[in-house]
């Protein structure tokens, strides 16, 4: 499923809403999650999962072709941990 299909499903379930409003609703939800992570905040959606940001320290990497050492700067990576309900439902 891609975003436009998700929007269509929500629109079908809510015929009283304008399609463009459904688009805004879906976009708002994902933008809000991204915005929180950009601030370094966590997003916890019980049953579904939690998004957080993990810090990866700077390290010395290697060019796998030449074996040459290259410095890799520290960076922040988004992380998602599946919620308990969803994890269990995936294995029913």
């Amino acid at each position: 499923m891609i975003k436009s299909e998700l929007i269509n499903k929500i629109a079908e379930a809510n015929p009283h809403l304008y399609h463009r409003d459904v688009e805004r609703i879906v976009s708002t939800i994902f933008d809000e999650i991204t915005g929180a992570l950009v601030e370094g905040d966590r997003v916890e959606l019980r049953g579904f999962g939690a998004f957080s940001v993990k810090e990866r320290p700077a390290r010395i990497g290697r060019n796998p072709r030449t074996g040459e050492k290259v410095p890799v700067a520290e960076k922040r990576v988004p992380y998602f941990k599946t919620g308990k309900d969803l994890r269990e439902q995936l294995n029913k």
Partner: peptide, 29 residues
């Protein structure tokens, strides 16, 4: 970094402010 935790309530509030729906309907969406 502010180190807050966003929840469904914050997403509901964002939807509520973005589209002219009630808070209940925003939460349902």
């Amino acid at each position: 970094m502010s180190n807050k935790t966003l929840t469904r309530a914050d997403l509901t509030e964002a939807v509520y402010e973005e589209v002219g729906l009630s808070r209940n309907e925003s939460a349902a969406l």
